[in-house]
Design a binder for these strands. Structure first.
Lengths: 138, 138
DNA sequence: TGTAATCCCTACTAAACTGATAGGATTAAT
DNA sequence: ATTAATCCTATCAGTTTAGTAGGGATTACA
């Protein structure tokens, strides 16, 4: 299941991308427009900022803005920040690899082989989708 | 993340498929060979039986067996039984569709569109993979 | 007919995770 | 100063996960 955190995060990013006139967007505005609990959203945008996807400006008239063009922001990066590893098992994760306790030989493990295929096909989607695709209104 | 339940279930199915000489396979044998807590595995095999993927024979010399040829057992079915819906959000689920509370218009929702693509690519893997693929030793 | 092996079923539990709330500290514009 | 924003930490109720416990029901076979 996609966590609410990720869902909210994606919606917020889309919102910011759509309202780009180089003015920072306030959490409150996003929360209201997208029906997201504001305090919850605060934390989400914070992690997006810490990861380098968003920038922020503090104080009055502050808010969040994209650090790069929407077309440069790949879903692989966004999803990893919000949802964690893309692979469904650590033993097929590119960025968070971990060996299974059981499983003496990965190449013989049926789960391993299946999950590599799932990872690759999901990765293929995320690599070929940017925030620009999400926020286009076609 | 893939649940242990699913992981264990897939390993067990693979084990049964590999040791097919038409004799039912005992939970204890699978548990020992695959390093799975036996009581936990019991429950998993039970749900696989109730779903029609496995059959069982009670009493001495009893055990579990496949109800169909491995090449007929598609991962779509197995995954839905073990892991639940394949879609990451209910609003793009084929078998368990549910509208989002928020989201007045799905066709305009960025998350919706992205998740449809993920669903389709994952589905494509599961539809083209059978237990025979998992249990082959190439 | 008794006994051992096996599936079957229900209930319980500890730990982790999720989604959210609370309360305030810090910063900046006016 | 006041106000409006981000930032940070802690807390919490509910759910899920992974597993354990204990036994009931069924069958093979001596």
């Amino acid at each position: 299941m996609l966590s609410k955190k990720t869902k909210y995060g994606l919606k917020a990013l889309t919102f910011i991308a759509r309202s780009e006139d180089d003015m920072p967007v306030q959490v409150g505005k996003i929360a209201k427009s997208e029906q997201i609990p504001q305090k919850f959203l605060e934390g989400i945008l914070l992690t997006l900022r810490k990861s380098g996807i968003l920038g922020s400006k503090k104080g009055k008239h502050g808010g969040y803005y994209l650090r790069h063009e929407p077309s440069e922001i790949k879903m692989t990066d966004v999803m990893r920040v919000l949802e964690g590893p893309i692979a469904m098992v650590p033993c097929v994760s590119l960025n968070y690899y971990e060996k299974c306790d059981d499983c003496p030989d990965e190449t013989l493990c049926s789960v391993h082989r299946l999950m590599i295929e799932v990872r690759d096909s999901t990765l293929n989607v995320f690599r070929n989708t940017t925030l620009a695709d999400l926020s286009s209104v076609d």
